[in-house]
Amino acid sequence: MLFRAAIPIVITILVLSGCTLSTISPVKKSGVDSIHHTQILFFSDEDHIDKEVPYYDALLDLEKDYPDHVENMKVYDDKKGWEDEIETVPTLMVVDQSHVVVKIEGCVKRKEDIIKPLQHVLAK
Rank of each mutant, 00 (worst) to 15 (best):
V15Q: 14
S17T: 12
H48V: 07
K64S: 08
I35W: 03
Y55V: 14
H37G: 13
Y56V: 14
I9E: 04
D65H: 07
I11C: 02
L62S: 03
S17W: 06
E63K: 11
V27P: 10
I13R: 10
V15C: 15
V15A: 14
E46R: 01
D47L: 12
P54V: 01
V10E: 00
S17G: 09
L21Y: 10
I24M: 10
S34C: 03
D47T: 10
D57H: 04
I13W: 05
E52P: 00
H69A: 14
D45H: 01
S17R: 00
D68C: 05
H36V: 12
S17Q: 13
G31S: 06
I24G: 03
I35R: 10
H37E: 07
H36N: 13
L14V: 14
K64H: 02
S34I: 10
L14N: 02
P54S: 09
A6M: 04
L16Y: 04
D68E: 06
E46Q: 14
I7D: 07
K29S: 15
I35A: 04
I24E: 09
H37P: 02
I7A: 13
V10F: 06
H69W: 01
A58E: 01
P8C: 06
S17I: 01
V70R: 06
L14A: 12
H36F: 07
V10C: 05
H48A: 03
D33E: 14
F43M: 05
V32D: 05
L14F: 07
P54K: 01
G18A: 07
V53T: 15
L60Y: 01
T23E: 08
S34K: 11
